[in-house]
Design a protein around this nucleic acid. Sequence first.
DNA 1: GGACTACCAGCTGTCTACAATAGATAGGAC
DNA 2: GTCCTATCTATTGTAGACAGCTGGTAGTCC
Lengths: 240, 240
Amino acid sequence: MPSTNPSDPHASPDRKASLGGALRRRILTMHLAPGAVIDETELAEEFGLSRPPVREAMRQLAGEGYIELEPNRPARVTPLGYRSLRDFFLFAPVVYVASTRLAAERRTDAEVAELKEIQHRFRAAIRDGDVDGRVFENDRFHLKIGEMAHNAYVLPSLRRCLIDHARIAKVFYEDQLAARHPKMAEERDEAAAQHDEIIAAIEARDPDRAEALVRAHLDLSRRNMAMYAAPEGMAIRFDN
Amino acid sequence: MPSTNPSDPHASPDRKASLGGALRRRILTMHLAPGAVIDETELAEEFGLSRPPVREAMRQLAGEGYIELEPNRPARVTPLGYRSLRDFFLFAPVVYVASTRLAAERRTDAEVAELKEIQHRFRAAIRDGDVDGRVFENDRFHLKIGEMAHNAYVLPSLRRCLIDHARIAKVFYEDQLAARHPKMAEERDEAAAQHDEIIAAIEARDPDRAEALVRAHLDLSRRNMAMYAAPEGMAIRFDN
DNA sequence: GGACTACCAGCTGTCTACAATAGATAGGAC
DNA sequence: GTCCTATCTATTGTAGACAGCTGGTAGTCC
């Protein structure tokens, strides 16, 4: 019985919260691939729980959009289809702009400080070549801005977008060919620089500038994704 | 044991779906007031279920924003504070406009037909003075438009807004003093007429007109809410 | 008389065991 | 040989019982 083992890292007092956090992270970083089936029994054993609390956690994750449930069928990680990309770039700007504008108007000093800490960890992950950490801290960064908006409706909307933001980004980052592309390093640095500018605009309580910056930030992602999904043809001549 | 009673209306094959639907409806129509505690045991008995499936349903509802959960504390219906009104009218236009524009671009004929059916039931509820039915069908109407947008991110965002749209409207409609106000009947008819115009714009695949209409629709609600929350002073003279 | 403490009731959280359903596999019929 | 069908297994869904926490109450001490 794994739960009786004191060295088990998951035998902590709140194993359920641990389960939820772990599942979210695995889905965001694509360690659980879109469409992958999730076995209740397996998770229960891994976290030293019985199935009912695991099932509760699954329901919650389903409500948040991480997984999808069908009756009498195993739970599956929310798929990420070709349509997701289009859907995302249609709706995400709306949510991100609303979130960032409100954050610029309503932020507290303590929140700005916390945002800077997240950005610090984000830059550290880039420096260390830690792709998962980079995806995760980027998620935390935008989520924190959503919290700073202090609006009960913005935050859940943003959360749903961020799930697929992270997963779309991960697809791009982990592609080895794309990773070697010189534009890749450029994009990485520019994204980090944009984060700094967004922080500055929010700190200065300047919604207009914050909006312009976050639009540019999303546009950078969008252009990279387009380049990745529909690259230029290879420079090969068939004339030898 | 209520579940063994064949005449029990809740002993249907899918009691859990029934539970979720009933709870959502009760919360939308304010039969479960904001902040009200929800007793698991009570619900389990009412729907002829044991507590685990009830708890699962609660988690799902929490994820969707209907209720709030805290550890070792009873579940509570999501509160509806003075800030909710402001938050709602700040963010709802953004979501409704996105939803309606996309619906106008992507709708199918079958969906338009279904939307007209919902509108038919909405008008019937108004005619019959059925306040709960009016609130519920209005919710269904806007939700259907969200489905017609065929965008995985818009729909959950809209869902969260609609929960409080229904509840805010219910506060207004059920106020007896406001109900007697002559503006009330006017607003009722105008809202229904706007629904018809929105349907027409979506059917005509005209996103711009649909956007203008839905903005006007929200503005009508907003003005009424403002009037309700901050009415003009009473016309009483203290001179006798 | 007021305040602190220990007990107690009720609820939430969890576990084990059982029932029901879906998919897979093997057997038989055409 | 192919298709259909029936059984069988693995997984999901549910029930009932137990453990742990919270809040209230009553009793006692200062």
